[in-house]
Design a protein around this nucleic acid. Structure first.
Lengths: 208, 208
DNA sequence: GAGATATCGATATCATAATATCGATTAAAA
DNA sequence: TTTTAATCGATATTATGATATCGATATCTC
């Protein structure tokens, strides 16, 4: 089993490196350029780059921009296309179905499920089914990723169904910390915490 | 200037503690209960609770549930109501305007701005204006928080306008690491990174 | 009432990530 | 051609967060 050689922290910075480098037109880019542009430490930048690319930098030049872009895209999985279902097609779920940025990132949402839906409906090109049909359809679609945008009350129960249906990766937008077996990965999108950080800053002026 | 005594990591766990405790009906709740339910270390739970509440726990009982709930809600800023504008009213922006969860979290979106809009339009109860009017309206509304859901190309330019208009806290959904003065705080919502974590797990089976 | 034990809070240890330091190297400048 | 300086990569240090340990104590059981 292949293992990842870089940390999640590194992974989280990669999209920013990528965007900066794609916006340049020079032959090379140095770790200092990147660090200054993104407000990071330049040693950290070099370590991140070393973790995802075998290309060495050169003194007084930096790194060749184009090969590095390729390596970062590779590390971010931009080559592969994943399929996912989305459960909970309210406002947020609908927005995510419509969000065209996912395609660029290599994600295709192939179906939605919602308790409120009786017969199949369509949100643009995406079919949305009653949640009842989740346990049958997911194995047939052979999808391994699910986006969870249901409310807190239902989150764990839906999660259990998803796992039983064969889902192995869950992108969790609910306020619940999900209980899953070891072979299932959860990524939490914690809006309440994000908002709290900002709100607290405004009310106290205290950063970090 | 009041300072926050707890870390962002603690803050990110608070919504989960809160949800768990609100779903219980017992008089008390122990750090072990919480830790087991949420898959955390119980020492970590105790430290988090100590950081946001002066209430002591008792041997063999744990913590009184209701006062602790109050303290966590206080720490998360649920008492206060913040106002924000949203810039970039595409699919994601529209969803966030409609997302009723924000109200519970103490956030009211008072206006939207979008380049495509010529005259004022309405998204439910929220007025959306042309981006031209941003620099005049934001000071008049006296809003200090902005949600940024524009595309990467425009993100930094819009950010600069927001800062000039008096915005001090930015919730950034774009793929760009924004450059801001020291007295402005940015919180990045990094969808590409989240997706990459999940996608990579599915393709390699490697967790953590 | 005496003993057992669950739970706390404090402190110590460990793990991980961020940052600083420094010699080596190579392109540019003199 | 020689000197200068920007940049790298490796290593050391520091900072931060997570986890383990342990004595104190309040409640429960007998």
């Amino acid at each position: 089993m292949e293992i990842r050689s870089f940390t999640i922290q590194t992974l989280e910075r990669l999209p920013y490196y990528l965007h900066y480098m794609e916006s340049r037109e020079t032959e090379d880019v140095s770790s200092r350029d990147l660090a200054n542009a993104l407000g990071l430490n330049e040693v950290q930048v070099r370590k991140d780059l070393a973790a995802v690319s075998s290309k060495a930098g050169r003194p007084r030049r930096g790194f060749e921009r184009k090969p590095l872009i390729r390596d970062i895209r590779e590390a971010l999985g931009f080559g592969r296309m994943d399929e996912a279902v989305i459960v909970g097609v309210g406002h947020l779920g609908t927005a995510l179905i419509n969000y065209k940025g996912f395609r660029e990132l290599g994600l295709r949402i192939v179906a939605g499920f919602d308790l409120q839906v009786e017969d199949e409906i369509w949100v643009n090109e995406t079919p949305v089914f009653s949640s009842d049909r989740l346990k049958n359809l997911i194995p047939r679609l052979n999808v391994k990723m699910a986006i969870l945008t249901v409310n807190s009350e239902n989150a764990q129960a839906v999660c259990d169904e998803l796992v039983a249906a064969g889902i192995r990766a869950i992108w969790n937008f609910s306020q619940v910390m999900l209980n899953v077996p070891d072979n299932v990965i959860v990524r939490n999108e914690n809006m309440a915490a994000s908002l709290a950080v900002l709100s607290e800053y405004l009310s106290t002026g205290n950063n970090k």
